[in-house]
Amino acid sequence: MALYRRLDPERMPHHVAIIMDGNGRWAGKRSLKRFLGHQKGADAVQYIVETCSRIGLPWLTLYAFSLENNLKRPRTEVNFLMMLLRTYLNNNVQRMNDNNVRIRYIGRTEELPGEVRERMQWAEEATVRNTGTTLTLALNYGSRSEIVDAVRRIAAEVKAGKLQPGDINEQDIDRNLYTAYMPDPDLLIRTSGEMRISNYLLWQIAYTEILVTDRLWPDYRGIHLLEAIEEYQRRERRFGGLNTGTESDDVSSLPDRQLVL
């Protein structure tokens, strides 16, 4: 694909985070029930995951289900989303293994229904040996609650005498976040045109490049991700006003530049 061949392999993002927005609006524009929008959104997830695998993107984090929406959505819709998650895992773990994708999760997942947690654990264990893209689903996630949970863990360390209050630094917060195992995102994409962060990775995106597209999530495909990466590569990244001159880690293991999406 011509667009893929235009990308600079030395300036590929290491971690892309996406706020998947617009499922309901996609369904509404077609006079369909919201549930069908969520189903189409799940299909889009797999398209994007497989594109990330093909281009050698190490980290992909998707905002799948927010803590706030868990409280605001009708119970029938929440139940459908839980069923959809189970179905997605059941149907796609083999495809993840075929594409060398590992799946992980962030959020207050302990509050999810037991049968959902069982499938999540099964999928994580089934893909744990994969070494390509790590797909992280943010489930029952809210960034403020993540920071609260991190502060609670740090407070417990202080109480136990393992850490002095005056010694607490940014690294202590980093290692107590849900995302301690991953690098901060290089690129944050939000679909549906909304100009909000929606309580997503607030600590982690301090210097992340942000791209908003009007395209609704169910219509998002691999070509659109490549377009976003091309836009990312046109930007001059700055970290606190200092231009580092580099955007990514070593990407010498990127595959051949031919790509079919």
Score class of each variant (00 low, 15 high):
1 M>S: 09
2 A>Q: 13
7 L>E: 03
9 P>L: 06
11 R>D: 15
11 R>P: 10
11 R>Y: 08
18 I>V: 09
18 I>D: 01
19 I>N: 09
19 I>V: 14
22 G>L: 06
22 G>F: 13
25 R>F: 01
27 A>C: 03
29 K>C: 11
32 L>W: 03
36 L>W: 09
36 L>E: 15
36 L>D: 13
38 H>W: 02
41 G>N: 08
41 G>R: 01
42 A>M: 10
45 V>R: 05
46 Q>F: 14
51 T>P: 07
51 T>I: 11
51 T>Y: 06
52 C>I: 01
53 S>G: 01
55 I>C: 12
55 I>R: 10
55 I>W: 05
57 L>G: 11
60 L>S: 06
61 T>R: 10
63 Y>F: 14
64 A>I: 09
65 F>C: 12
66 S>D: 00
67 L>A: 11
67 L>M: 06
70 N>V: 13
73 R>W: 07
83 M>T: 12
86 R>P: 01
93 V>M: 11
98 D>K: 13
105 Y>G: 04
106 I>S: 02
107 G>P: 00
110 E>A: 06
113 P>S: 05
117 R>F: 05
117 R>A: 07
119 R>T: 00
119 R>C: 01
121 Q>K: 07
121 Q>C: 01
124 E>C: 01
124 E>Q: 10
125 E>F: 02
126 A>N: 08
132 G>I: 02
133 T>E: 08
135 L>M: 09
135 L>Q: 08
140 N>G: 06
141 Y>C: 10
142 G>S: 01
147 I>C: 07
149 D>Q: 14
151 V>Y: 13
153 R>W: 02
153 R>P: 04
155 A>H: 12
155 A>C: 14
155 A>M: 06
158 V>W: 06
159 K>N: 02
160 A>H: 07
163 L>H: 01
165 P>L: 00
165 P>Q: 03
166 G>F: 03
170 E>A: 13
172 D>A: 05
173 I>H: 03
175 R>C: 10
176 N>S: 14
177 L>K: 09
177 L>G: 11
179 T>W: 01
182 M>A: 14
184 D>H: 04
186 D>Q: 09
188 L>T: 00
192 S>G: 02
193 G>A: 14
196 R>G: 01
202 L>V: 14
203 W>D: 08
208 T>M: 00
209 E>N: 10
210 I>L: 12
210 I>T: 08
211 L>R: 09
214 D>P: 10
215 R>M: 15
218 P>N: 03
218 P>H: 04
219 D>M: 00
222 G>M: 05
225 L>A: 08
228 A>H: 02
231 E>I: 12
234 R>T: 13
235 R>F: 05
236 E>I: 08
238 R>H: 09
239 F>T: 13
240 G>S: 05
240 G>F: 08
241 G>A: 06
248 S>I: 02
250 D>P: 00
251 V>I: 10
252 S>Q: 00
253 S>E: 10
